[in-house]
């Protein structure tokens, strides 16, 4: 039996492949039209993960790489739900994040920004959503940092997010921004997204109710994956 089909991706909601203000996209964007493919087993199935694949501490970036103490920075909780376009929770799906430290420096052998590495901060985490699609991470707020695009571009504070869903065609990587950050409107990567409402969807809201008083401030970030189609009537076989 073929698994459920999913709604087509709204390509006008996503950034175009070719977005010349984000210069790296110029040579890395296919020039031919994408070939539209109806889902088969290859697209409608996908990998699954379980608690055996991860450790309980993997979602705590304050602790998961700590050597001699806590990392420097503003302690934050990032939480939310993974939903599909039908607003149904996506349970037991893998959410992975990565980010710069509080100074805007990544722990990566290719990052040479002058802000220092934090010896107590790795910068990645992962977790599985619960039965209601909830996930939670604890981390420090990443810093803004400069990047080479125009002469003087700064990335807004952001956390990279990777999500699976149940079908490989739902696979998604995006970035989470922080409410109130004036750099969001100035960033050529953010601005590859053509619709302001879509940009707003990537801005996590300050969520005072979810803070831990006297300890950590909280942001809420829901992630939406493509929805599953309900099949009321079978397709007429092609060619008939």
């Amino acid at each position: 039996m073929t698994p459920a089909e999913i709604y087509q991706r709204d390509r006008q909601w996503h950034p175009p492949t070719y977005a010349p203000d984000y210069k790296t996209s110029v040579a890395r964007s296919p020039r031919n039209a994408l070939l539209s493919l109806q889902g088969s087993m290859s697209e409608l199935t996908g990998p699954t993960f379980g608690q055996d694949d991860i450790d309980p501490l993997d979602n705590d970036l304050i602790r998961n790489y700590a050597q001699s103490g806590d990392p420097i920075g503003e302690r934050i909780i990032v939480h939310g739900r993974v939903l599909d376009e039908n607003a149904r929770p996506v349970p037991n799906t893998l959410v992975e994040i990565w980010q710069a430290n509080a100074g805007g420096r990544y722990r990566h052998k290719k990052d040479s920004y002058l802000a220092p590495i934090d010896p107590n901060f790795g910068g990645c985490g992962r977790t599985l959503t619960d039965a209601d699609g909830h996930y939670v991470f604890r981390t420090v707020k990443p810093g803004a940092y400069p990047w080479r695009n125009w002469v003087n571009n700064w990335r807004p504070a952001h956390i990279h997010v990777s999500v699976f869903g149940t079908a490989f065609a739902q696979r998604l990587i995006t970035q989470m921004y922080f409410e109130g950050d004036p750099l969001i409107a100035k960033c050529p990567i953010v601005q590859t997204i053509p619709d302001q409402r879509a940009i707003d969807q990537l801005v996590a809201a300050l969520d005072l109710n979810a803070t831990v008083p006297l300890d950590a401030i909280a942001y809420k970030f829901d992630i939406v994956l493509r929805g599953t189609r309900s099949t009321y009537f079978e397709n007429r076989p092609e060619g008939n």
């Binding site: 984000y22 722990r107 998604l172 995006t174 990567i189 409402r197 969807q201 990537l202 994956l225």
Partner: peptide
């Protein structure tokens, strides 16, 4: 709901 829009994985996706 609308699918969350994609953003580049960036150069440090390996982290």
């Amino acid at each position: 709901l609308k699918e969350s829009p994609s953003q580049t994985a960036g150069p440090y996706v390996h982290i």
